[in-house]
Write a protein that binds this DNA or RNA. Structure first.
Lengths: 213, 213
DNA sequence: ATACATAAAAATGTCAAAATTTTTGGATGT
DNA sequence: ACATCCAAAAATTTTGACATTTTTATGTAT
């Protein structure tokens, strides 16, 4: 049986939350995870407190932990907030960032694009989805990475994680044109960013997310 | 000797961080706080993990806790990010909120205004500063409270706390006209908000913070 | 002096058990 | 049927001891 280091417990729970293996809103009981990870309840508690920092887990004194709740309102809320942060981050990057930002962004998009092509060609396995998910984050993260605001980047990371958590369970109807749209939207964002067109980029970001409002 | 409940430990540390009694960037060792609060190191650790959620404390595996670092760049960063969130929150409130928001905002401003008058009349004691600090938060919090975005309000709370933490140690040169300016700025924000003038309100928020950029 | 290795000390992390609190489920009475 | 109370069970929090890791201090060689 696999043994887990504390960091592995963290990553494993992170993934389970992001992918709604632990469903949004459900209670998380240290005792139940103890046997799986082969550690004390205290270590689990510790890890859950750390996950609560990024908002994937909510914590209330004396009543433990839950995967963050979801609802149509909360999903819209998170999506809009994500737009706000990403628009600002992208706009600042466009204004201030240099060549290395462009390269980072281009690279990230290239990787993402590669995976997206694979996904339309072959079906979309769970494993593909996992790789895509992280490539998608890296693209959006690269987009704002030139903004020169650590706190914005940090916060965006949390919000992106929450976004995934809230939507992954919903969007099980990936129609064949779903990914085609997404691919196009990513390309549009990239184009506007590299053209240093602030308003076009903001619009593209908005359009990319608007199905989730 | 006073005994502390866990919640009191949390509040006490919170205040010490906000008021830079624990200076920004300094190491926080559970063992050293143990005797003061009369509990085990583990309880302190637990509390510090909870404080790391709001960003007052940073945590790194195997190397413990620190009060969040500060520097001129970080202060400017936090200040600008605060403006972004507050402008958005205020604009949304102006657009969507109803009468109860106006009342909440008015009430909060009234309280704040009262304290600010006291502070200009008499000197400014540490105790006054504490009361003012919380009244100031309540005013800004009320301003965005009609935005209908839980995640924005939650995040703003964290950022406001970090803002206090980063600036309180710096601004020990409260000139006599410092508070006069602040009072005027608050009034300007209130006025614009109640007049439902989005752009004027955004501008007022920006001006309120621009000394910190 | 500087760099490096090593031992001692301090700090951090993990654990299992005990204490506390909340939740559950059934009995009682209205 | 419904609410209330109570006891048992479950979950959470706290503790103190122990294990691990990092930091500090010391000594040695270049």
């Amino acid at each position: 049986m696999k043994t887990y280091s504390t960091n592995e417990i963290y990553s494993d729970l992170y993934e389970q939350l992001i992918n709604a293996v632990i469903p949004a809103g459900s209670k998380i009981k240290p005792v139940e995870l103890q046997s799986k990870y082969g550690c004390s309840t205290n270590t689990i508690r510790d890890t859950l407190l750390r996950l609560s920092k990024i908002g994937l887990v909510t914590f209330q004194m004396q009543r433990g932990f839950r995967a963050r709740e979801t609802s149509p309102e909360k999903r819209a809320d998170i999506a809009k907030f994500r737009v706000l942060l990403e628009q600002e981050g992208a706009a600042l990057s466009i204004r201030k960032a240099g060549l290395d930002w462009e390269i980072r962004l281009n690279t990230a998009h290239h990787k993402l694009s590669h995976i997206e092509k694979l996904m339309t060609k072959h079906g979309l396995t769970d494993e593909h989805l996992l790789v895509w998910s992280s490539a998608e984050f890296e693209f959006h993260d690269a987009l704002i990475s030139g903004c020169a605001s650590d706190i914005l980047i940090e916060t965006y990371g949390h919000i992106y994680a929450q976004f995934r958590q809230q939507f992954v369970a919903q969007e099980r109807d990936f129609g064949s044109n779903y990914f085609e749209s997404i691919i196009h939207e990513h390309a549009t964002i990239l184009q506007a960013a590299l053209a240093r067109n602030e308003e076009a980029c903001k619009l593209a970001i908005h359009d990319h997310m608007k199905r989730n409002f």
